[in-house]
């Protein structure tokens, strides 16, 4: 929007997939701090110019929350206009059942880390009446091929519903549920979508829908083909 002030935006998992696509979209207008598991030198070439970077491994939820708060402070910010908690992981359940390790890792990264990060970032978001966006998945209603992943995303849905009510007036909380996108998530999860991949949306289009959903502050919002065919990637509010 013309005249709108640049925002201070934190995006977790901002060094790949949808997080990076969103960062690239917002980098021109806004001030960005991205987080990821990889080291600064590994991601230096990938990041959009001007974006800050902080290492935060969601595999250790408590430490990741502390790392983000420290990262925001070291970047010189005393508040946050937007936090997009986007980082996630997933494993295909081999033979239909998740291993104990896969269950624990999925819940830690996708749900517990987000809970503790939301709690740790609360004062920063509150200070600037910011928006907290949790990135779920269309799988939040259940999926037989990725049960633990679906469960973790359903947890985010419930967390957002409760927090949106608890923090109303102070912080806008929302959960966005993107459909499958052409990112490397499926390879990492050990899933070959085959020809189905042709039906996945481009990360850039999903990122565009994410940006307008973040600007609109509604919740919950499903970002898939229905929205895309309604012009979701080209219309709507701009962040």
């Amino acid at each position: 929007m013309i005249g709108a002030k640049p925002r201070r935006i934190l995006i977790t998992g901002g060094n790949s997939g949808l997080g990076l696509a969103l960062a690239q979209k917002l980098a021109r207008r806004h001030s960005l701090l991205l987080s990821g598991r990889k080291s600064q030198t590994e991601v230096a070439e990938i990041l959009p110019p001007g974006a800050g970077y902080v290492v935060a491994d969601h595999g250790d939820p408590e430490m990741s929350a502390r790392a983000l708060v420290r990262g925001v402070r070291d970047f010189g910010w005393d508040g946050l206009d937007n936090a997009v908690l986007n980082a996630g992981t997933g494993f295909v359940a081999v033979g239909g059942v998740d291993s104990t390790d896969a269950i624990r890792q999925t819940l830690d990264v996708n749900l517990l880390a987000v809970m503790l990060q939301a709690q740790a970032l609360y004062p920063l978001l509150r200070k600037s009446s910011g928006t907290l966006s949790l990135i779920g998945s269309v799988a939040h209603k259940g999926s037989a091929s990725i049960p633990a992943y679906a469960a973790s995303k359903a947890g985010l849905h419930g967390l957002a519903r409760a927090l949106r009510s608890e923090w109303s007036g102070d912080i806008s909380v929302q959960v966005l549920h993107p459909g499958p996108a052409k990112t490397d998530m499926h390879d990492k999860a050990g899933y070959d979508p085959g020809r189905m991949r042709a039906l996945f949306l481009a990360p850039d289009d999903v990122a565009a829908m994410m940006a307008s959903a973040i600007a609109a502050r509604r919740s919950p919002v499903t970002l898939s083909w229905v929205k895309y065919l309604n012009g979701g990637a080209y219309t709507g509010r701009r962040l």
């Binding site: 939040h140 259940g142 037989a144 633990a148 419930g158 967390l159 927090l163 608890e166």
Partner: peptide, 23 residues
């Protein structure tokens, strides 16, 4: 529903319900 005042509990129970459905 949403359960303000027990956000982590609500999240934990939603996750469990969907895990069961997925399994």
């Amino acid at each position: 529903t949403g359960y303000p005042g027990a956000a982590s509990y609500a999240a934990s129970k939603d996750a469990l319900a969907i895990y069961a459905r997925s399994m």
